[in-house]
Design a protein around this nucleic acid. Structure first.
Lengths: 378, 378
DNA sequence: CGCGTGTGGCAGTACGTTTCTGCAAGGTCA
DNA sequence: TGACCTTGCAGAAACGTACTGCCACACGCG
């Protein structure tokens, strides 16, 4: 029983507020601290009997290792930062709610499966924010839609912390890796789809901000128009302002060169375009074809259901996390500068299909409305 | 220059991977570690000249204090756990997306404003999850909709970590505090509103799960029916299954004792009821009054717009965080067992107002659709 | 007997802070 | 001149863990 010696040194009672430390376990089990650590972490050379004994004592004392101490010792916290660039003046806004929510959900789930947890952090703006950023030990960070010269990203990579972005970084931002949709292919495919459905003049509802999503999508639209010899017809509005969508939708349909099909880049555009069309007496899809980029399930049950482009945020979130954790665990930035381009999915509904005859109404159908179950990752 | 001594001891170069430690700053500034710590944290008795000098040297070296070491020393991590009870088998699901998203947004924002960050953690289910829980140093935890005997909550309070729940805890769960809506008042007020609009038989679309929200709301409905001498007409379905809502909505309207007004407890019920009504040839609001509990903005632009009950998740999130941080900083559980009941808001739209004459169509209105800006907290 | 070898386990140190204690220099007052 | 306070700073003790050596012992073998 060398335990006596330990007790003499200092592990008499629970010092720290009542929680048992590794020392207490060692003393109670009559072994050394090293042995406890090894037994609990499956390291070292110990017979199973000792291992089991230590474990049972630890259980009995309700021992939980201190995350802070472990982090300090190992240099790994198991924490991943998650931040989304805020638009406008608001301190902490999410636009594209459904997209973000689903992306964050998938990312959280993927991270958890590999033993990491996500910390929600603000995009830097005030000086004060930096306190929070450096108050938490991060193994890596996910940045959604980083701005071109994000100081936080720069600082993090300077500290050697891997950063993976959702959305390809502009302006030589030094991220470790990134994931993005193939926006050109998505927009091109979607416009082809509308043209095939009979659209002669396709309009665009886009944003005034300069993020890559907006920029790439708009460019793809203009290119397509050039190829199709169609004059571009579009309205841009501040996408972060939730009230502006309806106004812009109205403006687009009020134009002299009114389009006979519209693609809306942002989530609320679909309902707003539908409402605007209703006000102008335009029937969808007969007079106006509609497609909207959105992750929201409501478009399956609008009247008529609206065709949506899904960016598959779940897949993106999962991919981002795996890239990041690979970078973290691959130590000194293996897979540096790598990236992944993910496909999108066009969910075709009534709003983008010109019906020969008007859709028959089923006054007493008892079947449930068709509804796609929520996408599971991948 | 006592700095020489420090350099002799061990602070020669950057040991730790390249990051400067407090020792390096002390050496470079020619002062002691204590002085650096005091200068940077605004403690101790130091002349402003020293303070400024130390700060400038720290800046020059790009010094960032180690969060892990600070946490280990002070016992405070500045981290708050956020978890939501998962339903069904899925590993990590959020139902009530808009509610959760807004609640989480507000909570994150409120926490950040007080210097805390939120960590997303899974509701316990597998044994494996516990690793993550004890791998992160938490100052406190927010639990959304805790199940009656959540083992994580029990374990956390056993460890002396404050836990505040969104939704009043059932089954003597020992949370530190809780916040909830006044569900009875909300349902009663809403049913009164429908009755005032002319409803004679109000139906309910509810869930089969036993969480407090569902239970309290359903009970309030039954009580109201008893008082109003109306036979209850309701259908229950598994609320976590996103496909089941449409089926249940259909079932409710297919009944022989079809209600002339319906309240749906969950977010998708509104659109699903609307779709079902359409299939049955029922006009809203003329033949069927509709109210739905939802935070989603889409109900402002459906045809017709649907009256919603908002639980004000932003306020809830803010209140929960403040209660929690007060408990954390008030040290040993001041304000123990306290709680807060928050009001809800009924957003009245066309679907619950019986129009004398059918609403006039405005074929060429150029005004934007009225749209409430997103609610800011409080 | 001397020696290598494998097994089981322990002491000690480092991780990077914060903070308590204390000490020296200088000033004030009796 | 001594007693006593204030100012400015330094030393060193934690905080709880992980891990690198190292020791003790037993055993088998030449």
């Amino acid at each position: 029983m060398t335990a006596a010696k330990h007790q003499m040194t200092r592990a008499t009672g629970r010092r720290t507020g009542g929680r048992a430390g590794i020392r207490d376990v060692a003393a109670a089990a009559g072994v050394s601290i090293t042995t406890v650590s090894d037994a609990l972490n499956g390291k070292g050379r110990l017979p199973d009997t000792t291992r089991r004994h230590v474990r049972s004592v630890a259980d009995r004392l309700g021992y939980r290792p201190s995350a802070a101490a472990r982090t300090l010792r190992t240099g790994k916290s198991g924490l991943i930062g998650l931040t989304v660039t805020t638009y406008g003046e608001e301190p902490f806004t999410f636009t594209e709610f459904a997209y973000f929510a689903e992306m964050a959900r998938a990312a959280t789930s993927a991270a958890l499966a590999r033993g990491y947890a996500l910390v929600i952090l603000p995009a830097t703006s005030q000086r004060r924010d930096f306190d929070v950023w450096s108050n938490v030990a991060l193994d890596g960070t996910v940045v959604i839609d980083p701005s071109d010269h994000d100081p936080v990203v720069t600082e993090l990579v300077r500290q050697g912390i891997p950063v993976v972005s959702d959305g390809r970084p502009g302006g030589s931002l030094p991220v470790t890796a990134w994931v993005d949709n193939d926006h050109e292919a998505a927009v091109t495919g979607l416009l082809d789809h509308l043209a095939a459905a009979g659209a002669r003049r396709i309009g665009l509802l886009t944003g005034t901000s300069t993020d890559t999503y907006t920029r790439l999508s708009t460019t793809a639209y203009l290119d397509w128009c050039a190829r199709a010899r169609q004059d571009p017809v579009y309205e841009a509005y501040p996408a972060h302002d939730p009230c502006a969508s309806a106004v812009a939708a109205d403006r687009l349909l009020a134009r002299a060169d009114r389009p006979d099909a519209v693609y809306g880049l942002f989530d609320p555009n679909g309902t707003d375009l539908l409402a605007a069309a209703r006000r102008y007496g335009l029937r969808v899809p007969d007079d106006l074809l509609l497609v909207c980029c959105s992750e929201s399930g409501v478009y399956a049950t609008t009247e008529p259901p609206i065709t949506t482009l899904s960016l598959k945020p779940g897949r993106i979130g999962t991919a981002v996390i795996h890239l990041l954790i690979d970078a973290i665990e691959g130590a000194a930035g293996r897979a540096q500068g790598s990236h992944q381009v993910m496909p999108t999915e066009l969910i075709v509904r009534a709003s983008s299909q010109r019906a020969r005859c008007p859709a028959p109404r089923l006054p007493h159908a008892t079947l449930a409305a068709p509804r796609t179950p929520p996408a599971v990752d991948q």
